[in-house]
């Protein structure tokens, strides 16, 4: 086991996949000298050449559209968007083209690309650099949506996404870039897509979350444990397809479900999970998500947006009352 950050683990996963498969390449802004926003591409241009780590103009539509074309033409591109907020400049290329090319053409083509677009609050980067629009892409047929929450997952899930023959929206959480965790460098296997991880075991309630909110949910579970309440905490890891079996089995056992996410609650993907569980099991469900406001700048304002551990714990206690 090696300790490394979430960003270093992503870099390792990409390096391994690029060494393994010459068809894998990445394109985006500032990947060479800068090595990506968090160093997740650091040194890879020197190692693999500037035709496999391609520094591009600030042209999000073309970064994404070129990835679609390059995938249709037989390669496995990774389109780096830097911020999911910037990827909104390339929604047509991803949603109208990449997600649907295989289907529209009757299965003639595949689009094995990764659209890498970090989400979430990192602190002080406000309304156009902090959003979590994962539900938009989970809503879109043809796309796989991945939201890693740990360094090990950010290596293993990235590897699986690169090997996937479907277009994958890969959403690292910017608040996690510096998170340190154990990574087993000897184990080169990808982590399968669509399989959740149970990070706390309990019997009173199921808490489902993803990305940076997983850590907050775990913190809440630890606090609840001190009060004699045991929570099953599930990190979905892949948002679409989400691990229905893991969630249903847990909720059937605990009899209650709470879904927590940083994204805005209204229309958030938590609603989909809560509804599925309620329809299938008939157990009580609840959601916690951001209020429907832009992410603000100033510290107390930004803090007011976040879903903190004490709020999660309080919500759980209300459900158990």
């Amino acid at each position: 086991m090696t300790e490394m950050t979430y960003a270093q683990a992503a870099r390792l996963g990409l390096q391994e996949e690029m060494a393994r498969d010459p068809l894998v390449w990445a394109l985006g802004e500032d990947l060479g000298f800068e090595g990506g926003m968090a160093g997740q591409y650091k040194g890879l241009q020197a190692e693999f050449g500037d035709d496999r780590i391609v520094d591009t103009p600030i042209s999000e539509s073309t970064i994404m559209g070129a990835a679609v074309g390059a995938a249709l033409a037989g390669t496995r591109p990774i389109a780096e968007m830097r911020f999911s907020d910037f990827a909104m400049c390339a929604v047509s290329e991803l949603v109208n083209q990449g997600a649907k090319a295989r289907y529209m053409f009757g299965g003639q083509g595949r689009v094995p690309m990764v659209a890498r677009m970090p989400i979430g609050i990192r602190g002080g980067i406000a309304a156009q650099h902090s959003q979590s629009p994962e539900a938009w892409y989970a809503h879109t047929p043809g796309l796989v949506v991945v939201t890693p929450a740990t360094p090990a997952d950010n290596r293993g899930l990235l590897k699986a996404s690169i090997r996937c023959d479907d277009p994958v929206v890969y959403m690292e959480h910017k608040g996690l870039w510096g998170m340190v965790g154990e990574v087993d460098e000897n184990d080169q296997e990808p982590i399968p897509l669509g399989v959740a991880a149970t990070i706390r075991s309990g019997s009173d309630i199921t808490i489902v979350s993803w990305a940076a909110q997983v850590g907050v949910a775990a913190e809440a579970a630890d606090a609840l444990a001190a009060d004699g309440i045991s929570a099953d905490v599930i990190d979905l890891r892949t948002l679409y397809p989400w691990d229905r079996d893991a969630v249903m089995n847990s909720a059937a056992r605990t009899g209650r479900l709470l879904v927590v996410h940083e994204a805005v609650r209204v229309g958030g993907f938590g609603g989909e999970i809560a509804a599925e569980v309620a329809e299938t099991l008939g157990v009580p469900v609840a959601r916690l998500g951001g209020e429907r406001i832009p992410i603000p700048f100033s510290i107390p304002l930004e803090e007011a947006y976040k879903i903190k551990a004490d709020r999660i714990a309080a919500r759980v206690k209300r459900m158990l009352a």
Partner: peptide
């Protein structure tokens, strides 16, 4: 247009 330049990059 963007799909085309990507296909060319694959070439």
């Amino acid at each position: 247009c963007t799909i085309s330049v990507g296909a060319a990059q694959a070439i």
